[in-house]
C-alpha cells in the first residue's frame, strides 16, 4: 500500500512544532482517517476533536496545507501526496493541544445576540401563517454547522485580533437568519453597527470561500445587513428627519 507523510502540529498554548508521521493511505481516505490511523498506531495521545465524520457536526476544523477545511471532508485524492500534507489547528483561536483549539469565544458572542422575537401569534391556537417563499431566504443560513472556519479565515480576527469589537462572519449569518425571518420583530441593527462591528468587514469574501456548507456568507448575509445598517443610520433623508424630530 502506498504511504504518505503527514506533517502535524503538536503542542499547546505554550508552543509547539510540526512532526512528520508516515502512514499508509488507501482509496477513498480523508484527512481525518489519516489522523486517526496515526493516532491509533503511532501517537495515542494525538489530540483531535471530531464527531460525525460526515461534514455535519463542524468539529474537525483545521488548516490543511494552509487552507481552513474540515478534515472529514478533505479527500486525500485531492491533495498532492508526493509532498507532506501539513495539518495545523485553526490559528484564530487559542490552542488547547495539538489540533484542538478553544472556540469558546464564539459561544460567548452568541449570547450577546438578541434572541428570536416573533410577532404575536396569527391564530387563536398560538400558531403563525407565513408564506414559504418568505422563509426560504433564511434556510441557507440555517445550514451552518458552526465549524468556525469562516471565523478562522477572517482577517479581522486572524490578523487584527479584534475579537472584542467584531462578531465575525458566523454571527452575521446567525443575525441575518433572525433579522430576515418573517416573524421576527426584534431590531439588531444598532448592535451590528456598535459592539458587533460589522463595519470592519471589507467584504473580501474569504469566509464564503471556505464555508463547507457553501453558504453565500458575504453576498447573502453580510452585504444585506450592511445595507440595512446604512439605511438605518446613514441615510441622509432619514438623518434629516431624525434631526427634525429631535429638534
Amino acid at each position: 500500500m502506498p504511504k504518505a507523510t503527514f506533517r502535524i502540529w503538536r503542542g499547546d498554548a505554550s508552543g509547539g512544532k510540526l512532526h512528520d508521521y508516515v502512514t499508509e493511505v488507501s482509496e477513498g481516505m480523508v484527512v481525518l482517517d489519516a489522523v486517526h490511523q496515526i493516532q491509533a498506531e503511532q501517537a495515542n495521545d494525538l489530540a483531535v476533536r471530531w464527531n460525525c465524520k460526515a461534514g455535519k457536526c463542524g468539529s474537525c476544523s483545521a488548516e490543511i496545507n494552509g487552507m481552513p477545511r474540515l478534515m472529514c471532508m478533505t479527500r486525500l485524492s485531492d491533495l498532492p501526496l508526493e509532498e507532506p500534507v501539513t495539518i495545523e489547528p485553526m490559528r484564530s483561536f487559542p490552542s488547547l493541544r495539538d489540533l484542538v483549539t478553544d472556540v469558546s469565544w464564539n459561544f460567548g458572542v452568541k449570547k450577546t445576540i438578541r434572541p428570536f422575537g416573533p410577532r404575536p401569534a396569527d391564530a387563536p391556537d398560538g400558531t403563525w401563517r407565513i408564506a414559504e417563499g418568505d422563509v426560504d431566504r433564511v434556510q441557507e443560513f440555517r445550514k451552518c454547522i458552526e465549524c468556525f472556519l469562516c471565523q478562522d479565515v477572517c482577517h479581522v480576527l486572524r490578523e487584527h485580533h479584534l475579537h472584542e469589537e467584531f462578531a465575525g462572519p458566523r454571527f452575521f449569518v446567525y443575525t441575518a437568519a433572525l433579522e430576515m425571518h418573517p416573524l421576527d420583530t426584534e431590531n439588531r441593527l444598532g448592535d451590528l453597527r456598535g459592539p458587533q462591528g460589522i463595519g470592519y468587514c471589507n467584504i473580501t469574501k474569504c469566509c464564503t470561500k471556505v464555508c463547507p456548507e457553501s453558504i453565500t456568507i458575504t453576498d447573502n448575509a453580510i452585504i444585506p445587513l450592511k445595507e440595512r445598517v446604512v439605511d438605518e443610520f446613514y441615510d441622509p433623508i432619514r438623518r434629516l428627519l431624525r434631526g427634525l424630530r429631535s429638534g
Binding site: D45, A47, L96
Partner: peptide, 14 residues
C-alpha cells in the same frame, strides 16, 4: 496504558 498527560488525551479517554 497511555502516554502523555491529562490534557485532551484521546488515548486516555479511549
Amino acid at each position: 496504558g497511555v502516554a502523555g498527560n491529562r490534557e485532551y488525551n484521546p488515548g486516555w479517554h479511549t
